[in-house]
């Protein structure tokens, strides 16, 4: 369009956006800065805006020895738990939902619609609204403080099934027909055609569910009692003591940086898949 383009109208959006980006970055940057200073510098309230000399010391300490009070678990084991949980949730969800979507789309059987709604309704039951009964069931099954206890109750939800169902509906009917004429049965069709075609959807779902699993809070908070089982998100909560004199902020901030780095790296590194997954799972 031919519209008066002044320097103001040209650069204003960039100025505003950069300001926004700066404000969004600020808390993370200050957390990183804090993680590279000693407790004295932080507690006198005069934290500089640039990193200090304690980077290696603080991170080494937190990764391998932990804090001196509250939870003393080293952070590397929390990171390990978080990875196991995030990958377990993502992979588990993908497997059970791709199988159920395959059954729902490519088979006709009695009660199919009922089964679909049965799964679909679980969208309306977030873990928060049924937290104690679920906890009790997991406890009765002896799954407290176990990885499968952390993972399995979270892997069934309608999102994945709906996403795969939606994708399968876009696969041309003729591909199945050609496969049938090419003497491929259901398993061959699934393995040779459907799964290879679903790769982007699988990857997008993995990205979203990895983040979902990594960021779980209430669930691991309830069902892990041992420090050795806690995830990093739970670990950091235990490092923040309300009587703040006891909080080792440089270590807490180092843990925060370590806790947000993996999912943020996934989002930035796989931005396309992330956006696709987000838009398609939520909408």
């Amino acid at each position: 369009m031919v519209e008066k383009e002044t320097a103001f109208s040209k650069y204003m959006p960039h100025v505003v956006l950069l300001l926004g980006v700066l404000i969004i970055f600020l808390p993370v940057w200050l957390a990183f800065v804090a993680s590279t200073w000693d407790p004295a510098t932080i507690s006198n309230g005069k934290l500089p805006l640039t990193p200090g000399p304690y980077f290696i010391e603080n991170y080494k300490r937190i990764l391998f020895s932990g804090t001196s009070s509250s939870t003393r678990e080293p952070v590397w084991s929390m990171l390990g738990n978080s990875f196991i949980m995030a990958i377990g949730v993502a992979v588990g969800k993908i497997i059970i939902s791709i199988l159920s979507a395959f059954a729902l789309v490519y088979y006709k059987f009695p009660l199919r619609r009922t089964v679909f709604w049965f799964i679909f309704i679980t969208l309306m039951l977030p873990v928060e609204v049924r937290i104690f009964p679920t906890y009790k069931i997991v406890a009765d099954l002896g799954m407290l403080d176990t990885y499968h206890g952390l993972i399995i109750p979270l892997i069934a939800s309608a999102t994945g099934t709906l996403l795969f169902r939606q994708f399968f509906m876009t696969v041309p009917d003729e591909l199945l027909e050609a496969s049938k004429i090419d003497a491929a049965g259901p398993f061959r069709f699934f393995k040779d055609t459907l799964v290879p075609l679903s790769m982007t959807t699988i990857a997008a779902l993995f990205v979203i569910q990895f983040i979902y699993g990594w960021n779980q809070y209430l669930w691991p908070l309830l069902i892990t009692t041992k420090d050795s089982m806690q995830t990093i998100v739970i670990g950091i909560r235990k490092m923040i003591v309300t009587q703040d004199a006891l909080t080792e902020w440089q270590l807490a901030m180092a843990t925060a940086v370590l806790a947000l780095l993996p999912p943020v790296a996934v989002v930035i590194g796989m931005q396309k898949l992330f956006v696709k997954g987000l838009v398609e799972t939520e909408k």
Binding site: P27, L30, A31, N215, Y217, V233, W249, L260, P263, I268
Partner: peptide, 20 residues
């Protein structure tokens, strides 16, 4: 540059702001 906070766990986001 703007979408990554989505990936930060709510609890971590809380801790970052608490620190400030």
């Amino acid at each position: 540059l703007l979408i990554w906070p989505y990936a930060v766990a709510p609890a971590i986001a809380g801790v970052l702001w608490l620190f400030l």
